[in-house]
Amino acid sequence: MRSWGPMCSWVPMCSWERRPRRDEGHSKALTLAILLICALLTSTSSAAEPLNVTVEGLVLQPGTYSLPEGARLSDASVAAQVRADAWFLGAALLRRAAIQPQQKLKAGLLFDLQSSRVHWQAEEQAAGVELAGRLLTAVEAMPVTGRVRAQLDPLQQLALSRNGLLQDGDRIAYPPRAERVRVTGAVKADCLLAFDPSLQPVDYLDQCPRHALADPSYVHVVQPDGRTQRRGVALWNREPGNVAVGAVLYVPVDPKHLAADAQGLNDDFVALLATQVAEAGAAGKGLVSESAIAAGAPLLPGVKQGLGASVGTYRGRNPAATGSAATEVAFTDSIGVAADSTVGGATRGDMTPQGEQSVGEYAGG
Rank of each mutant, 00 (worst) to 15 (best):
S3W: 04
C8S: 06
G25Y: 01
A29K: 13
I37T: 07
A39P: 05
A48D: 12
P50D: 11
V55Y: 06
Q61K: 00
T64I: 01
A76H: 02
L89R: 15
L89I: 00
G90S: 07
A97I: 10
K104T: 15
D112W: 01
Q114A: 14
S115Y: 13
Q125D: 15
E130F: 15
A132S: 13
R134T: 06
L136Q: 12
A141W: 06
Q151K: 15
Q156F: 09
Q156I: 02
Q157G: 02
L165H: 08
P176G: 06
R177F: 09
A178D: 10
A178W: 04
L193Y: 06
S198M: 10
H211T: 12
A212Y: 13
P224T: 04
R227P: 00
Q229F: 10
G241V: 03
G241I: 01
Y250L: 15
V251I: 06
V251A: 10
K256L: 15
H257M: 05
Q276G: 09
E290H: 09
S291E: 15
P298R: 05
A320D: 14
T322R: 07
G323F: 09
T342D: 00
T342S: 12
R348Q: 09
P353K: 13
Q354Y: 04
G355W: 05
G364T: 06
G365T: 02
